[in-house]
Design a protein around this nucleic acid. Structure first.
Lengths: 212, 212
DNA sequence: CAACGATGTTGACGCCGTCAACTTGTCGCG
DNA sequence: CGCGACAAGTTGACGGCGTCAACATCGTTG
């Protein structure tokens, strides 16, 4: 009813009925989360945005929550890539750590929808093994960066794991507080850009961790 | 139909029909959030728990979100009190800061439902001035504690406001990550109690901030 | 070319938040 | 003492939601 039968509009690979509904739904969901928040996201609205019936999503995701979990896994992958590439351009250990912190904060701001889904509590509550694994990988990347610094003789206190915990916590907390606007009325963060907040946080952490 | 007309069961103040429905609804909501999460909380279920009709809550809260906001304000008050009383029992500045950090983490664990509501994103999205003010007060308490330490000549780097930002971020991030179970698979946090995680975080922070 | 499985649709169910209209109980004022 | 106003609670309705079951369609594969 929609297309000429012998010539699909998107010529390439798989195009059963829709093209790639799974991808379209994930994209639509991301947009809806960006505008309406995680709670405001609706399966039916995502289906509408993809021009399919309200039950079509169930051919690709067992439930609304599972769609969000897929988004979260995807977001973790993007975050990991962002952190890796932020670090890649420098050989100086201290600078790598600073860039790592800034990249974390900037990812949270630039991909707020993904970030919110990744750490939304109802997703956390039904977390699958795959999502846990993705989160672990991110934490291990923090650890591996700190391990490099330690092996270079730059660390002075705490184990690598402890410092990774503190570092991740501080960056994550700052990102959350900024994202939720909790810091808007405070003197420090009022006029500062997220990038500068990240710098303050990471520099302060490094002062405590690195040798002097 | 329920009570003797001249002797209300709760003798003191106001007791129109129910006693104190507003309070009952807040309590019921807190319990529901604890068991079903913020998203799983339902106005109708809270009403059922309070033995009133599904529309009775609207005589006390303009919407579901506003009930949650009231819970969040209440929680901020409790958090502030917890932080204040944790600090009160010591005169040593360093110890006060350690206790402050531990109290933050322990509040998040012991009152997880309140804490989740306080920082749930849909509440943040519709935050009222009153909630903002309550959050500001908490931040200012962090600042005032650090200010005391600085005036005692204990600080060595960063402004009070910067250090308050970093400290709150780290504690908040750690609390969030623990609460969501993100750290469960990591080596540091696997077997540790929240209290010990808080210690690791706060000690590491103090190493960077305090004079040596 | 026929059958099969993956993909998408229709319709229904119960629950939800919210609005409007109604009832009931309480208190202040003449 | 009575009455009227107003706060508190109820009933019923509406549309939207997530999800289930049954049905329709289409590409692929034997």
């Amino acid at each position: 009813m929609k297309k000429a039968p012998t010539a699909p509009t998107t010529p390439v690979k798989i195009a059963y009925h829709h093209g790639d509904l799974r991808r379209s739904l994930l994209d639509a969901a991301l947009g809806l989360v960006a505008t309406h928040g995680v709670q405001g996201f609706t399966l039916r609205e995502a289906a509408r945005a993809a021009n399919v019936s309200h039950n079509a999503p169930y051919r690709h995701f067992p439930s609304r929550t599972h769609l969000l979990i897929e988004l979260a896994i995807e977001g973790q992958g993007h975050l990991l890539k962002a952190l890796q590439s932020a670090v890649a351009r420098s050989a100086d250990h201290r600078e790598r750590l600073v860039r790592l912190g800034i990249a974390y904060m900037e990812f949270a701001m630039a991909h707020a929808a993904h970030f919110r889904v990744m750490f939304s509590s109802d997703v956390a509550r039904n977390r699958t093994g795959e999502l846990k694994a993705a989160q672990d990988t991110t934490f291990r990347f923090f650890e591996s960066e700190l391990l490099s610094s330690e092996q270079a003789g730059l660390m002075h206190g705490g184990t690598v794991q402890q410092n990774a915990l503190v570092g991740w916590s501080a960056l994550h907390g700052a990102a959350m507080l900024v994202l939720d606007g909790v810091l808007d009325n405070t003197a420090v963060a009022a006029r500062r850009k997220p990038r500068e907040i990240a710098k303050v946080v990471i520099e302060s952490l490094l002062t405590g961790i690195l040798v002097r």
